[in-house]
Structure formats: C-alpha cells, structure tokens
Simulated scan of single mutants.
Amino acid sequence: MSVRRYELTFPGTDGTGQDTVVVERTELSGPGGHPVYADASGIVRAEISDQDEVRMLASGGQQALAHPTGARRLPDS
C-alpha cells in the first residue's frame, strides 16, 4: 500500500529548531521510478521510495535544494 502523505523536516532557517512541510503524493514518478510528493504550493517536491528515502526535486531553475533531516509517514485523513 502506498503512502499518501509525508511530513518532511528541515533545519530551521534561523539555525535553531526545525521547519516542517507536509507533502502529498502526485501522479508523477521521479527519476528513480518512485512516487513524487509535493506541498500545496508545488514548490517543495520530493521523490520518496517505499523505504522512505527522499530525493528532493527542483521545481524551478534557480532553486537551492535543502535535504530534509527526517521524513515521517502521516495517516490518511
């Protein structure tokens, strides 16, 4: 069974704490053949394997990609 939503955790922009982003599964597949997940804005995009391995995907030409420190499966709501 595929996971519909993940919560990705990133280092806080101020160097302390953490920022979280919820991403939902899209109909797309990434370069590794795994599902692509995106946040509501479409800016944060990630390919996530069935082993919860995350590969961040650029949504624009000048985007600097940050790697999440964690990926947590969320229950379907």
Rank of each mutant, 00 (worst) to 15 (best):
R25Y: 00
G17N: 05
G15D: 07
E47D: 12
G42M: 13
S41W: 09
I43K: 02
I43G: 07
Y37E: 10
G32N: 14
V22D: 04
T69Y: 03
D52M: 04
Q18T: 15
G33A: 03
L8E: 12
A40M: 13
P75A: 07
A58W: 06
P75V: 01
S59Q: 03
V21R: 05
A40C: 11
Y6H: 08
A71M: 01
S59R: 00
E53K: 13
D14S: 10
T9F: 05
D52V: 02
P35Y: 03
P35A: 06
A71R: 04
A40Q: 14
S29C: 08
I48H: 11
T69A: 07
V22T: 11
A71G: 00
V54P: 03
E47Q: 15
S49P: 06
E47S: 12
P68D: 04
G60A: 15
Y6L: 09
G32I: 00
D19H: 11
G60R: 15
E47N: 11
R4Y: 02
V44R: 03
G32S: 12
P75I: 01
E7G: 10
G70Q: 08
I48G: 04
R45P: 14
T13N: 15
S49C: 01
E7W: 04
G17W: 02
T9C: 08
H67A: 14
A38V: 00
L74Q: 05
H34S: 12
R72S: 08
D50I: 05
P35C: 08
G12W: 06
G60V: 11
G42Q: 09
I48S: 05
R25I: 04
D52G: 06
G61P: 14
D76I: 01
Q63Y: 06
